[in-house]
C-alpha cells in the first residue's frame, strides 16, 4: 500500500495524459462519424440501386468484422501493400485510429439514423403536404425533431460503447490511457511490474461514461414533452 502511494503521483500524471488522448479520440470520432453516418444512411436508402447496394455491403462488412482488425488494416495496409507508411509518428498513429473509428461508428450510426428516418409515420409528411408545406419545411419543421427523439436512446448506447472502444487504439500503440496504464507493468519512469495502474484506468472510464449518461439522459428527458 505504501508503495502504491509512492507510485501514485507518477502514475496519475501518466494516466491523465493518456486519458487526454482517449478523450481526443472520442470527440474526434463523434465529430466525424455523426455527419458521415448521415451520408451513409442516405446512401443506404437511395433509390439508385447500385449506390444502395454498395453502401449496404459496406455497412455489412464494417459491422461484421472486429473494430480491432479494422484498426490494424487501416494502420498497416498502406505500408505493407504500397510500401508507403503514411501514418508516421505519434500523430500518424492517432490519425489512423481516428479514421478506423470514424468509419466504424459512422456505419453503426447510419443504421440508427435510417431507423429514425423511416420510423416517422408517412402521415406526418402527407399532413404537411396537404397543408401546403414544402418538402424542406416538412423535414425541418415536422420530421427532424421526431427523428432526433427516436434516435437519442440508441445513439446514447453507441456513444457509451465508444467511450470504452477507444481502448482498442492501444493495439496500434496510440498512447491513450490503457497504453499508459500498461506501460507501468512493462516498466516506465522507474516503475515496473505494477499491474494496479492498468486496473485503475477503469475509474476514468467509469467517471466519464457516468457524466455522459447524465447528459444524454437529460437530453432524452428534454424530448419527453411530446410523444
Amino acid at each position: 500500500m505504501e508503495l502504491i502511494m509512492e507510485q501514485m503521483p507518477i502514475v496519475i500524471r501518466s494516466l491523465n495524459s493518456g486519458f487526454l488522448q482517449t478523450l481526443k479520440l472520442f470527440f474526434v470520432t463523434l465529430v466525424g462519424s455523426v455527419p458521415l453516418g448521415l451520408v451513409i444512411a442516405f446512401g443506404s436508402m437511395s433509390r439508385f440501386k447500385p449506390l444502395n447496394c454498395l453502401t449496404r455491403i459496406f455497412v455489412w462488412i464494417i459491422r461484421g468484422t472486429p473494430l480491432m482488425i479494422q484498426l490494424m488494416i487501416v494502420f498497416y495496409f498502406p505500408g505493407l501493400v504500397f510500401h508507403n507508411q503514411i501514418w508516421r509518428g505519434m500523430d500518424g498513429r492517432f490519425t489512423a485510429a481516428a479514421v478506423a473509428f470514424i468509419i466504424n461508428y459512422a456505419c453503426y450510426f447510419s443504421v440508427i439514423y435510417r431507423g429514425g428516418i423511416q420510423g416517422v409515420p408517412v402521415g406526418q409528411e402527407e399532413a404537411g403536404l396537404v397543408l401546403g408545406m414544402t418538402k424542406r419545411q416538412i423535414f425541418f419543421k415536422v420530421k427532424l425533431l421526431q427523428m432526433i427523439k427516436r434516435i437519442v436512446p440508441p445513439m446514447s448506447n453507441e456513444i457509451i460503447t465508444l467511450v470504452k472502444d477507444t481502448s482498442l487504439a492501444t493495439t496500434i500503440a496510440v498512447q491513450e490511457i490503457i497504453w499508459a496504464g500498461e506501460s507501468f507493468a512493462k516498466g516506465s519512469q522507474g516503475i515496473s511490474g505494477a499491474i494496479w495502474p492498468l486496473f485503475f484506468t477503469a475509474v476514468y472510464y467509469l467517471v466519464f461514461s457516468g457524466v455522459l449518461t447524465v447528459l444524454l439522459g437529460w437530453l432524452e428527458r428534454k424530448l419527453e414533452y411530446f410523444r
Binding site: G123, V130, G132
Partner: peptide, 17 residues
C-alpha cells in the same frame, strides 16, 4: 393548387411536437 382543398385524415396526423 393544394390549398384549394383541405384534408382531415382518419388517423389525425397531428404534429406531436
Amino acid at each position: 393548387k393544394r390549398l384549394h382543398f383541405g384534408l382531415v385524415f382518419q388517423s389525425f396526423n397531428l404534429f406531436p411536437q
